[in-house]
Nucleic acid binder design. Structure first.
Lengths: 146, 146
DNA sequence: AAAAAGTCTTTGATATATCAAAAAAACGAA
DNA sequence: TTCGTTTTTTTGATATATCAAAGACTTTTT
């Protein structure tokens, strides 16, 4: 069914890149414009730690949908920036708990504000119902493949 | 409006990563399972060349939403694999036309089949109307930020 | 207790993305 | 023609993602 294939091809490029990289690039640009020298990937780690501090690296893998080596190196870089520190878990010495430093706590308000403003820009003309539907469909896609 | 902020935060992680990286990883995995040693990024270049051969690097930037250095290095790697060749444009010596080699043409059928099968997996339980809706919303997001 | 299996993290190799800057060619205006 | 600007591509530096393999520690099994 070639018509259907064509639709799928289109959706592929839409889902896989366009919108998500556009949002990522804009957010990075807005961070830089505000003088914030962190990457969005680093920010996404901080984002989860602001919700719950001192998560294990494995837990950060689960919450950010990244693999273990990616997290290891992201935490390496966040440690170099002195935004987080690794704390060996007293209960299980295999585990590193990743905890926020004061510098990271100061970033919370400003970066969340910028992220919200960026999403406002991105969602101009998009209704709340549409947002809900997109979330549901993309969640279905994720669940189909996980 | 904290409730609204929370919704945006959720959408951010949905749009920016989950579904698109899940699709990308699955497609890469399916390529490897079929013994195909190309990356999805390389495949996305071939995809556009199958639609229209001998595009300039700049045109590939536009069609794949990538920047120039990314395209330069992707073409470098595709040339190493002997899948494409750079041909200097006779009309404008600044321009490299990127043209398919025979090896790349042989990949077309099998990789498009795998890509369609992957999208079938990804879209189980998603209706045609939902697909259209998601495409429209993500296109709006892209247009808002471009 | 010792061996086996499992979990969490790290390392190495390779590919891609981004920013900034430079090189090469084309174009336009004085 | 020559200078300045624009366009196309490349290079360098740094950050991230992925796969495979290894290291460190725990838990389970015998």
């Amino acid at each position: 069914m070639p018509n259907n294939n064509f639709r799928r091809g289109e959706l592929y490029s839409v889902i896989n890149g366009m919108a998500s990289t556009a949002v990522a690039r804009r957010l990075q640009k807005n961070f830089r414009a505000a003088g914030l020298e962190i990457t969005i990937e680093q920010w996404s780690i901080l984002y989860h730690l602001w919700k719950e501090d001192c998560l294990s690296q494995q837990e950060l893998c689960n919450r950010t949908f990244r693999d273990k080596p990616s997290i290891t190196r992201l935490i390496d870089n966040l440690e170099k920036l002195k935004l987080v520190k690794r704390v060996s878990s007293p209960e299980d010495k295999r585990i590193n708990l990743v905890c926020l430093n004061d510098g990271a706590k100061e970033l919370q308000d400003i970066t969340l504000r910028i992220a919200n403003e960026t999403m406002d820009e991105a969602l101009i003309g998009v209704t709340r119902d549409e947002i809900e539907m997109v979330k549901n469909v993309l969640q279905k896609v994720y669940d189909n493949l996980k």
